[in-house]
C-alpha cells in the first residue's frame, strides 16, 4: 500500500518545513501580472494612435459622423426591434430529466404539491425577475424516462410534457405569477422578514390570458370539466391508459390546487407571517378581507 498521498502528504510535509507565516507565503507563479506600460516597439512608439489626423491629435470627429454623408444612425427613423420587450416574458427551462433527478435525489418531495416556490427552494433552479423571467418552462428533455407521480404547477408546458406527467398518474397545472409575486418567491425567507402582507396574485395579462384559460394547456383558470376531457384526449393521442385519480390513495394531494389569488399553499393573501414569534397576523377588517379574496 502506498504511503501518504495528496493532502495528507502535503500536511505531513509541512511538519518538517518552517512555520507558515506572513513573510513566507506567495501566490502561484503567473497569478499577478503587473500591468506594463507601452515602451518601444510593442505597445509603445505611437501607442496605438496612428499617424497625424484627428486620431493621433485626440481631436476626434463626433461618434457616428461619416464625413458628411447621411450617417447610418440617422438613416432609419424607426427601428422597432425592442418595442414592448419589457412586456415580453421569458420562462427559463427546467427539463423533465432534471425534475426526475431532483425527485430521485430527494431534493423535491413528490408526496407534496410541487410549485415554483418549492422548485426555487431546492437551490438548483434560479430565475431573474429583472430579465423578465416569469417562471418555469417544463421542457420535454427526458420525457421517455420520466416516471414520477407528481402534482406540479408550472408556468409553461407543452403537450408531450403534459402527457408524460399525466401518463404516470400525476397532475399538471399552468399558472401565472405577476412580477411582485415573483419577487416574493425569489427569496421567501427574506420576504417574511419584511413584514409585508402576502400579496394576492394578479390575473394574467391579455397576451397570455388565453393560454391560462384553456384546458388544453391545463390553465389554472380553465374549467375543470374541460380539463378532464382534455386528459382523455391526450391519453388517446399519445396512446396510454389514463390512470384514475379517484382510485389513487394520493388523490387529495394530486387534486390540491391554489386559488387564483393565492400565492402559497395553505396561506392566504393578506396575512403577515412573523418568523420570530412563529405567528400569523390576519387582518380583521372586512374591506381588507374582501380585497384580498376578490
Amino acid at each position: 500500500m502506498a504511503g501518504k498521498q495528496g493532502k495528507d502528504l502535503a500536511l505531513s510535509m509541512l511538519r518538517t518545513l518552517p512555520r507558515v507565516a506572513l513573510n513566507n507565503i506567495r501566490n502561484n507563479p503567473g497569478a499577478n501580472k503587473p500591468s506594463k506600460r507601452g515602451r518601444g516597439q510593442h505597445g509603445g512608439d505611437k501607442h496605438g494612435a496612428g499617424n497625424k489626423g484627428s486620431g493621433q491629435r485626440q481631436n476626434f470627429m463626433r461618434t457616428g459622423y461619416e464625413t458628411g454623408n447621411n450617417p447610418f444612425y440617422l438613416r432609419f427613423s424607426y427601428e422597432p426591434y425592442y418595442k414592448g420587450h419589457h412586456l415580453r416574458r421569458e420562462y427559463p427551462p427546467l427539463s423533465l430529466q432534471q425534475l426526475q433527478m431532483f425527485i430521485d435525489t430527494n431534493r423535491l418531495d413528490p408526496s407534496k404539491p410541487i410549485d415554483l416556490v418549492s422548485i426555487v427552494n431546492t437551490g438548483l433552479y434560479d430565475f431573474k425577475v429583472e430579465w423578465k423571467h416569469a417562471g418555469v418552462h417544463l421542457t420535454d428533455e427526458g420525457v421517455d424516462n420520466f416516471e414520477a407521480k407528481v402534482n406540479i404547477e408550472v408556468q409553461w408546458a407543452s403537450e408531450p410534457v403534459i402527457a408524460a406527467i399525466e401518463k404516470n398518474g400525476g397532475t399538471i397545472t399552468t399558472a401565472y405569477y405577476d412580477i411582485h409575486c415573483l419577487h416574493v418567491i425569489k427569496d421567501v425567507d427574506r420576504f417574511f422578514t419584511t413584514g409585508v402582507p402576502i400579496p394576492r396574485r394578479l390575473l394574467p395579462p391579455s397576451d397570455c390570458l388565453e393560454y391560462y384559460m384553456s384546458a388544453e394547456t391545463r390553465g389554472y383558470l380553465a374549467n375543470p370539466e374541460e380539463i378532464s376531457c382534455e386528459r382523455l384526449v391526450l391519453s388517446q393521442k399519445y396512446g396510454y391508459e389514463l390512470p384514475k385519480i379517484e382510485d389513487n390513495p394520493n388523490n387529495e394531494m394530486l387534486t390540491q390546487r391554489k386559488d387564483p389569488r393565492q400565492l402559497f399553499y395553505g396561506l392566504e393573501p393578506g396575512w403577515v407571517v412573523s418568523l420570530k414569534d412563529k405567528a400569523i397576523l390576519k387582518p380583521k377588517a372586512d374591506y381588507l378581507k374582501e380585497f384580498y379574496s376578490s
Binding site: 402559497f264 399553499y265 396561506l267
Partner: peptide, 9 residues
C-alpha cells in the same frame, strides 16, 4: 405554521 415551514428554504 406547517405550511409556512414548507415554504421556507
Amino acid at each position: 405554521w406547517e405550511y409556512v415551514e414548507r415554504v421556507l428554504k
